[in-house]
Structures are given as C-alpha cells and as structure tokens.
C-alpha cells in the first residue's frame, strides 16, 4: 500500500498526485482594514462595559456612602474579577491583533477558501458546486463603515462559511463571481 513518503511514484495511474493543484500555494486576499477598526472598536466597547460592571461595587460605595448595604461591603478580593477580566480581554485583543492579518480568502476556478483565526486556526474550502445559496449581510454599523459580510450556505449546514468585513464593492464583485461560477 503506497504511503505519502514514496509519493513520487503515483499509486494509481488515473491521477498524478504531484499534479494535483495545491491550495497551500495560494495568495490570500485580506479583508478591509476598516473591519479591523470596527472589531477593535467592538473590543474596546465590550471591555469598557465589563470593566464598569466589575468596578460597579466601588462606584456604588463612592456615590452612596451613607447607604448601609454599600457601606458594609469589603473588597478583599477585588483583584480576582479584575484580573480575570484583564486576562480574557488581553487574550481577545491578541486574537484580534494577530488574527486579523490572517483573515483572508482565495478564489480558485472551482472553489473558494477562507482562512481565519490566530489561536484556533482554520482554513475552509467550499466548492462552488456545493453552494446552495448566498447572502450578503450589512447591519447598521457595518453600513457606517462601508462593509458587507458574505455568507455561503451548503447542504447540511456544516460547511457554511462567513466571510466578514469585505469592502462593499468587493463583496458585490465576489458575489457576482460566485453566482456565475456556481451556476456553470
């Protein structure tokens, strides 16, 4: 039984394994840099909200010092929730910072590949022939940034793909390409 080690001799003459097009050699197109701004903005907002939540007992005590319920509060372990929040926030920021340059898609003649993630990395390839339908999504925030998200749906749903943060024009172009290619 042939293994990949002695792959220079093709196992089955029907297909020359060395001639199979390689996905790894692809150049990926990144998504819009404005999407990074948007994501960092979301990160900052969520962090602000969480920090506010974590320090809310302090604030309550400061604002209503005469209230008995707040006056009796002890803050011996105040650093635990703050530490947890800071750690998770930093991890998320790292993911956004290092993960963003890895976001990108590559279009081939018969399939589309999407790469994403820094901590948990994934490269998904979906053949055009399997796309059941396409969806372009734009929420109010994405509209303000001039961005669109493209969703591809496949049968069964396990291969669904979401390419987020495309420039409006680019998203429309990509949709047209996928529409025509997948109907061939």
């Amino acid at each position: 039984m042939p293994t990949l080690v002695d792959m220079d001799v093709p196992a089955n003459s029907a297909i020359d394994l060395t001639q199979v097009p390689q996905l790894e050699a692809l150049e990926y197109t990144g998504v819009s840099p404005r999407y990074r701004t948007l994501r960092l903005l979301v990160w900052a907002l969520v962090q602000c909200g969480l920090t506010l939540l974590v320090v809310s007992p302090f604030i309550l005590k400061l604002v209503f010092p005469e209230q008995e319920a707040f006056a009796d509060m002890e803050f011996d372990f105040w650093w635990i929730p703050l530490g947890v929040q800071a750690t998770l926030g930093l991890f998320w920021l790292t993911e956004e910072w290092l993960g963003f340059p890895r976001r990108g898609y590559a279009v081939r003649e018969r399939d589309i590949t999407y790469r994403s993630g820094w901590f948990s990395r994934s490269t998904v390839t979906v053949p055009y022939a399997q796309i059941q339908h396409l969806e372009l999504v734009q929420g109010p925030v994405a509209r303000a940034f001039g961005l669109k998200h493209l969703k591809l749906f496949t049968a069964g749903g396990s291969g669904n793909l979401r390419i987020a943060g495309l420039e409006e024009g680019e998203a429309d172009r990509l949709r047209t390409v996928l529409d025509t290619r997948s109907l061939d």
Binding site: F119, R121, S122
Partner: peptide, 22 residues
C-alpha cells in the same frame, strides 16, 4: 460540502493539524 484544515496555534508550530470533512 467543504474541506477544512484546523489547528491550534501550538499545533501549527509542530506542523500538525486536523482534517475536517464537511
């Protein structure tokens, strides 16, 4: 319906990953 190559950052350093067949 799709093929996925998946790995955590630690595995990437060791050139290891998981194949997912959708």
């Amino acid at each position: 319906q799709g093929v996925e190559w998946k790995r955590l950052v630690f595995l990437e350093r060791r050139s290891i990953g998981h194949l997912v067949f959708h």
